[in-house]
Nucleic acid binder design. Structure first.
Length: 795
DNA sequence: AGAGGCAATTTTTTT
DNA sequence: AATTGCCTCT
């Protein structure tokens, strides 16, 4: 063994070393939270390469782009001696890989290579039309729930025909009809949804032996992270790629099984709701009878109390094989569990604690994270962080692309890349308004559909469409030439339009009139949001520019580089603008919220518990430990989902290295309504010896320092959570604090402060039970607010 | 055609 | 609170 190979083994525990050294045959790594999984996986890859396995024959699959990027980076630094050894290494997400394979083998998959990937809002838009066209009532058949049913079917690899064949009851039969029509509409739009990426790839790998053979020729070593969260479709894809089909009964043994290495932890399975099947990991040993199983149990991340508390919690999962969590590290503060008055109090508490930890314990903002069950909980936290001037970042990778103006610009790009994309076309055909109203568009559409043409074809042939006004024909013509101009003369395919991707994006923004429309609005209404929109649009141009700068066509897993690239030498061809555009749109479609986590930002990270999986922070706060929230109301009906909620909390707790705060509030504003809450049952499951309870929900005001007596007060018994609570007293104290309820002195002429709108003067007050006030705010103008919910304070 | 206003509604998590 | 959809007014 070379010295380099030996390096990858230094400082490892025995089981870690075994995992790193494993080369051929199936391997299951059961990696408990904080057990050094990433370290092991990256070193194993580096080790494989160092013993002569070509990097291009290794395929690593993760769930988020960020995880993939990190893994690639860490492998890169392990192999820093020779960057060329990384050549052709593929580490990517399931969805990315599938998208690339489907483009490369579009024919075999029954697609066209320029297909669009529809996100959830595209899917809803399409589904609404489909349901409407079937003359079904969107009230009775909600796009969301229908899509949910279809998604479940797809995850089990049931296509519309199979679904229809099984459908017995009226409801299922109806869904089957919608499913069929929805699929037809997707294909007509030359589009696939998220599930299709997996489904169509699985189908292709099963049915097209030629494709599978090429994949086998390329990838000899398969590695899958977070295996406990794979669904059936992903399981099939993994099995096919691993060469499972080649293992004949009776021939499998320890050395001849496929080179598939899966890594996961059943205690961190949190995606059951989207079809993840925990039995994939539980049955791995059975499926690959020669599989080597390595358990990484020792935790290197958290202090004893944090780990003890998390262990005590997860033990309450009855459907779980008991597995001790242990650490050799000593000391550590107990887990703080604090009962707060409301979300404002809770957020203030978190900010105070973080500030203290930064000032006294030498932590940096980037070392801290707040985790919550639902995105809605971020608001109160944001307000507090902003108010206190503490830098924070919300992990919502998709947020930018969900903005109106960005969606509009991206829709133009999508139509440029795929003119059949009806959902995007409909979005932009009259945005900004160009005189093509609903009536004209309906006429054009029915004309086109009657002929089996796309909407774009209809626009192109507007002159022939009956009953169109001259104005509509004219507008159609202008729209068509706009798009043709952007595609470089209507024959983008095969012809490289001049300019870069960023230029194209810029042209879209200008030539579409989007920029002008927002500029006009910004001038007339003087609102800041339109200024912001313009800034966002130019940020989109920058993002396109940096995508272009970083894009490496040869790193495309479906590029299947020829010998010249794999063996070195040969320069990569200049990417065609259209393929660049496709790749860019694909990267936009496949961003994950977790991708936005960037510790380099020097800010506290706010994110959902789901997004936190795989990360670690010296200091963590998990907020909102209340019944209906964590566990979530939706999880009450069955034990399995309740246990998933518990795992979710477990995942949150085990992100913490040194400091963990868990909070619950007595009252929480839900959809604008102040509601009484019940502390989460999970709090009572935390072992008392590892936690420090503190009921601060009765405290008045906004004390910065926790009351040391209050800390002791809660620890006497375990009944503090559920019933012994004086709601009236709490309401009184809140009134005094002025943070909720209707403060006195709300009358015309009075000056008040609103948490969002700032200060203003009351113009008018009326109404009895749900009294409202008209308030003239200094910054944002006149607004009418319901006093009960407005959180006004007199100034 | 299209903007703006009002009423109803709100199933968490995400690739 | 905030978003979405429906409806009216210009």
């Amino acid at each position: 063994m070379s010295d380099a190979a030996a390096d990858f083994l230094s400082g490892l525990t025995e089981p870690q070393r075994q995992a790193v050294e494993h080369i051929d045959g199936p391997l299951l790594i059961l990696a408990a939270a904080g057990s050094g999984k990433t370290r092991v996986v990256t070193r194993r890859v580096a080790h494989l390469v160092s013993v002569g396995v070509p990097a291009w024959s290794i395929l690593g699959l993760t769930f988020t782009n960020k995880a993939a990027g990190e893994m690639r980076e860490r492998i890169g630094s392990l192999l820093a001696g020779d960057p060329r050894m990384m050549r052709g290494l593929t580490v990517t997400t399931f969805h990315s890989l599938c998208a690339r394979l489907l483009r490369r083998y579009a024919d075999e998959a029954g697609l066209k290579p320029d297909f669009t990937i529809y996100d959830m809002s595209d899917q809803s838009a399409l589904m609404k039309r489909v349901i409407g066209q079937l003359d079904m009532n969107t009230g009775n058949w909600q796009p969301r729930s229908v899509l949910g049913a279809i998604s479940n079917a797809k995850n089990e690899l049931k296509d519309a025909a199979a679904f229809a064949a099984e459908a017995g009851d009226y409801y299922s039969k109806k869904i089957a009809v919608v499913y069929t029509a929805y699929e037809k509409a997707l294909r007509a739009a030359n589009a696939v949804d998220f599930d299709d990426l997996l489904v169509l790839t699985a189908k292709m790998l099963r049915e097209k032996t030629g494709v599978l053979a090429e994949c086998h020729a390329r990838w000899k070593y398969l590695m899958i992270d977070e295996y406990q969260d794979t669904n059936h479709a992903q399981f099939v894809i993994a099995s096919m790629l691993a060469g499972e089909g080649e293992v004949l009964p009776g021939l499998e043994d320890a050395s001849s099984g496929p080179n598939i290495c899966v890594v996961g932890d059943p205690d961190q399975a949190i995606y059951g709701w989207r079809g993840a099947d925990i039995s994939n990991i539980l049955d791995f040993e059975e499926r690959y009878s020669g599989a080597k199983v390595i358990k990484l149990g020792e935790n290197f991340r958290s202090t004893g109390p944090i780990l003890g508390a998390a262990d005590g919690l997860i033990k309450h999962n009855a459907l779980r094989k008991d597995k001790p969590l242990f650490t050799t590290s000593e000391g550590g503060e107990p887990v703080d569990v604090v009962l707060c008055r409301d979300e404002e109090h809770e957020a203030g508490l978190v900010v105070d604690r973080f500030r203290r930890e930064r000032d006294d314990d030498g932590l940096a903002w980037k070392d801290m994270a707040v985790l919550y069950r639902t995105n809605a909980l971020s608001r109160a936290l944001e307000d507090a962080f902003r108010k206190e001037g503490v830098p924070y970042v919300i992990a919502r990778g998709t947020a930018f692309y969900e903005r109106e103006e960005i969606k509009n610009a991206v829709a133009y790009l999508r139509v440029v890349a795929n003119s059949a994309d009806g959902v995007s076309l409909r979005r932009i055909v009259n945005t900004p308004t160009r005189g093509l109203g609903k009536a004209s568009l309906d006429r054009i559409e029915s004309w086109a559909m009657g002929r089996g043409l796309t909407m774009m074809d209809g626009l192109r042939a507007a002159k022939e469409v009956p009953d169109l006004t001259a104005r509509a024909v004219n507008a159609s013509g202008r729209f068509v030439s706009l798009v043709d101009g952007l595609t470089g003369g209507g024959s983008f395919m095969g012809v490289d339009a001049p300019g870069s991707l960023a230029d194209l994006v810029l042209r879209v923004i200008k030539e579409s009139g989007l920029e002008a429309a927002y500029e006009k609005q910004a001038k007339t209404s003087k609102s800041e949001t339109d200024e912001e929109r313009l800034e966002n649009l130019s940020e989109l141009v920058s993002s396109a520019a940096s995508f272009e700068a970083e894009y490496e066509p040869e790193s495309d897993p479906a590029a299947f580089p020829g010998a010249d690239v794999l063996e070195g030498g040969g320069s990569a061809p200049t990417p065609h603008l259209l393929s660049l555009l496709r790749a860019y749109l694909e990267s936009i479609a496949l961003v994950a919220d977790a991708d936005a986590v960037d510790p380099a930002q020097g800010a506290v990270t706010l994110m959902t518990l789901h997004a936190a999986k795989g990360l670690e922070f010296p200091s963590v706060a998990v907020v909102g430990l209340e019944e209906m929230l964590l566990p979530h109301a939706r999880a009450f009906d069955n034990e399995a989902s309740l246990e998933e909620e518990r795992r979710l909390f477990f995942v949150g707790m085990t992100r913490a290295m040194r400091s963990l705060l868990v909070t619950s509030t007595r009252y929480r504003t839900v959809r604008g309504r102040l509601e009484r809450t019940i502390p989460s049952r999970f709090l009572e499951e935390l072992p008392i010896e590892h936690i420090r309870l503190s009921d601060q929900s009765h405290d008045d005001g906004f004390d910065d320092d926790p009351d040391p007596d209050a800390v002791r007060a809660g620890s006497s018994g375990r009944g503090w959570g559920r019933s012994s609570y004086d709601a009236a007293a709490s309401m009184r104290s809140m009134g005094a604090g002025g943070s909720a309820g209707v403060p006195a002195g709300i009358e015309p002429g009075a000056r008040v402060r609103h948490p969002q709108f700032g200060t203003g003067r009351i113009v008018e007050v009326w109404g009895g039970r749900s009294a409202r006030a008209k308030i003239d705010f200094d910054e944002v103008g006149v607004k009418t607010l319901v006093l009960e919910y407005a959180r006004l304070r007199t100034v």
